[in-house]
Design a protein around this nucleic acid. Sequence first.
DNA 1: CTTTTTGCACTGACTGGTCAGTGTAAAAAT
DNA 2: ATTTTTACACTGACCAGTCAGTGCAAAAAG
Lengths: 209, 209
Amino acid sequence: MESSSARSGGSTRREATRQKLYEAAVTLIAEQGFSATTVDEIAERAGVAKGTVYYNFASKSVLFEELLRHGVGLLTASLKEAAEQTARAGGSKVDALDAMVRAGLVFIDRYPAFTQLYVAELWRTNRAWQSTLMVVRQEAVAVVEGVLREGVAAGEFSDEIDVQLTAAALVGMVLVAALDWKSFQPERSLDDVHAALSRLLQGRVSGRV
Amino acid sequence: MESSSARSGGSTRREATRQKLYEAAVTLIAEQGFSATTVDEIAERAGVAKGTVYYNFASKSVLFEELLRHGVGLLTASLKEAAEQTARAGGSKVDALDAMVRAGLVFIDRYPAFTQLYVAELWRTNRAWQSTLMVVRQEAVAVVEGVLREGVAAGEFSDEIDVQLTAAALVGMVLVAALDWKSFQPERSLDDVHAALSRLLQGRVSGRV
DNA sequence: CTTTTTGCACTGACTGGTCAGTGTAAAAAT
DNA sequence: ATTTTTACACTGACCAGTCAGTGCAAAAAG
């Protein structure tokens, strides 16, 4: 057999179709929400027939779940990378946090629709993909929590901070600021936005430095 | 005019029905999203007939829009109140910011479902109530921006801060931290959460106390 | 070489159910 | 007397998921 090996070693036809469906689904769902987006729309935007969607995914919500997993996987990898690179370069934990803020901004800059969709679905309850979302959220937040904990252990951060809440707040800060940036002042540069958040992160807002 | 029968303070029967419908709609839509929530469900949860929904609101989306306006109105009032009270008591602008953080937390503590729903809809595009949402968002964020600007003018905050971005980031910080609190550690007290955010706000995370 | 078979990826008309919104007549509340 | 609510049957658009069938290329058979 070995049928698919006739084509290029990398991407099968199926793989390419799935990718097109992901891309179509992510923007439509970000704009309209999951329930308001029809499978017909997704198929049309992807340039395939409706049947193809069901040939590649068991259902509309399975498509969505795999989309979520895929996207948050990218984000988590990017955050880890940022933290590790800072560590390798001998940077402090604040530097690591700062690098992660930037990594987050880069991610959102690249995948704004995914970010939108993620935020919109994260705190919903009673939805089929709720558990998937929780797992996947925890992976991302855990990276930030890890850096905070190491910082506390190393005496760089006050041991009175609440790691879990602070991590959530930091994530929220970046998320909301970035979505605002993309929605309302898209002409601003990433460096600009990064600088504003750095200032806030390092407490250089009050007190004139 | 039929003002003869109007009670001052105005709890007509109609008003009460509307309120019941708001309350039913807000939790259902927070859980499931707008499109996945049916008018029949809303009516049932509110304990009224379906016809009553349409007697009181022109359509499902009009009901939702008025819900949004109503909710954000409450939040904005609460933030303003916090800022003004601090000013009257002769507090600094950091104190005002801190009071607003607390007001935000109190609001979210009281109306978690509304907050959920608001976050989920805020960055959507192409939706009927998009413009309503923008107006209403700006009102709330403007309160924070106002305090920041006054702080800069008074020399309390660095004049290098980006008011708009910083305001968005602060709102995001509180929003996400609070939703996390409600979703994952609801047993924590409001004071606890407030303390964690205050620390972050005042840059007392890095550097020993 | 040629014909036939097999398996994969995809197609799009169709089905059965769902749901926003309507119409109406009668009851309840003010 | 008027406003508000109820109960319930109904409509028509819309949509997730299905299924019989198409196109194609590689292998197997002749």
